[in-house]
Design a protein around this nucleic acid. Structure first.
Length: 462
DNA sequence: ATGTCC
């Protein structure tokens, strides 16, 4: 039996080596070949007390019984909150996260709402451990904005040209792929670092350049700079820009699922009820594997946006003259308060001193290019958007998209497609959210959406 | 947010 088979029958990390030694002793013994070691070890794991006198399994059983209890923190780590009117359930999730044994601290962004394990809009700093659901299902869900050398006046006069560029350049929906697979250097990376990335490489190839579902979008809009920006390399003025919101699609979801299951199965005694907040030590093999796979998914998600922008700008016949991009579901090794920490941002924008990012509002409201101020208490983070105020199911009951579409057209926003669960009314006011984090980020430019495409299957969660 | 092997 190998390590992963032993994990599968419930042998904890610290008992793997003794378990292998036990198997070797059994196999070397007189009747060893007649014994089904897998069944035997499973019985020992299930009820170690019954095996303490066992000829071969006694030592292993004793080790399993004396398995140390890992204590939750007695007092939760502190976290600071930006913004008002955050769901008490999101605060409850954050307090639970702050009880993790290796929690250093956390922060809640003004767009926070309930998610699996950690709230979306949550920042969590752990010591030497990574929690897959504190990164999120969509590993490296991210934003990319490209400024194009196309006059912005075209946005209102030439809808068909922009619509065609989006429709031809990307694909929407759960499971969406490009019929003609695209290529990118990320496919030359080593996808054999883990079994799950190896098995998803072909799907990654087919999904390069796709936008998925839920809150993901591709849109054209008008970018306004009130002043020249040396950071962006642009003069004051208005520009046509392309903005996309997508992530690591199927491969990233598979990585999260695989390693979160593994982490949950290995929660130590005393910590079983952390559920989806389960973590992997970076000293463990599984932790190292997740870290490597997560980083590959970061590169894949960036490549995904690269391909979207390459294809859409080519179909449009425009040239990219400037741009900004950032992950907002990811974990980084960073130094804060003089310590190296694993900073998880799940629906949070990196906002270190001088770091650029994009924070979108909704299809009817502006997105902002921001520059971080490096505030320590937020672990140098900001929100990743406006934040939902309404569940998707409630939104689908409450809104009729064809009616909303007309209202949006009156405001100068043309929607190619979208679901009723993504109408502007399901989001907080982005201007209030930006106000609530004005100490965290400075606004460099404003992007007003004009031509929007989202998935219309409206089934996914963010 | 994903895809249909808990």
């Amino acid at each position: 039996m190998n390590t992963s088979q032993l994990h599968k029958i419930g042998v904890p990390d610290h008992a793997i080596v003794p378990a292998i030694q036990t198997i070797q002793q059994i196999k070397a013994s007189e009747h060893g070949r007649e014994i089904n070691v897998k069944t035997l070890l499973a019985e020992v794991v299930a009820n170690p007390a019954a095996f303490v006198e066992h000829e071969f399994c006694g030592a292993l059983a004793q080790l399993l019984i004396s398995e140390p209890v890992t204590s939750k923190r007695e007092v939760p780590a502190a976290y600071k909150t930006w913004g008002e009117e955050i769901d008490p359930a999101a605060h409850a999730q954050m307090r639970t996260a702050c009880l993790l044994p290796m929690a250093h601290g956390a922060a809640l962004m003004p767009d926070a709402h309930v998610g699996y394990g950690l709230p979306i809009g949550g920042v969590l700093a752990l010591e030497n451990a990574v929690a897959p659901y504190a990164v999120g299902v969509d590993i490296a869900c991210r934003m990319k904005l490209s400024v194009l050398d196309v006059p912005p006046s075209e946005l209102s006069t030439n809808f068909e040209r922009f619509r065609h560029a989006i429709e031809a350049g990307t694909r929407f929906g759960v499971g969406a792929v490009h019929e003609k697979p695209q290529d990118h250097a990320v496919l030359d990376a080593d996808w054999n670092i883990t079994r799950i990335t190896r098995e998803h490489k072909d799907k990654a190839r087919r999904q390069l350049g796709t936008s998925g579902s839920g809150n993901h979008f591709v849109e054209f809009g008008e970018l306004t700079l009130a002043a020249a920006s040396p950071e962006l390399g642009l003069e004051a003025g208005t520009y046509t820009a392309l903005l996309s919101h997508s992530g690591s699609r199927g491969p990233g979801a598979a990585v999260c699922d695989t390693y979160s299951r593994m982490a949950q199965a290995r929660l130590p005694r005393g910590c079983e009820d952390f559920g989806r907040l389960a973590w992997l030590s970076l000293d463990s093999e599984a932790g190292q594997e997740y870290w490597a796979a997560m980083n590959l998914m970061g590169d894949f998600a960036a490549a995904n946006h690269d391909v979207i922008h390459r294809l859409v700008s080519k179909k449009l016949g425009g040239r990219i003259i400037a741009g900004v991009e950032n992950h907002h579901n990811f974990a980084w090794k960073e130094v804060h308060f003089g310590r190296e920490l694993i900073v998880h941002r799940k629906g949070a924008t990196p906002a270190g001193q001088g770091v650029l990012g994009v924070i979108p509002g909704s299809m009817a409201d502006p997105a902002f290019i921001v520059k971080g101020k490096g505030v320590a208490d937020s672990y140098e983070s900001a929100s990743h958007g406006a934040g939902r105020v309404m569940s998707r199911t409630k939104a689908r009951d409450q809104f009729n998209f064809s009616k909303v579409r007309k209202e949006l057209e009156a405001k100068g926003v043309r929607v190619i497609s979208a679901g009723s669960d993504e109408v502007p009314g399901v989001y907080k006011n982005i201007l209030s959210v930006m106000q609530a984090q004005s100490d965290l980020v400075e606004i460099l430019a404003r992007f007003d959406p004009r031509i929007v495409k989202m998935s219309d299957d409206g089934k996914a969660e963010d």
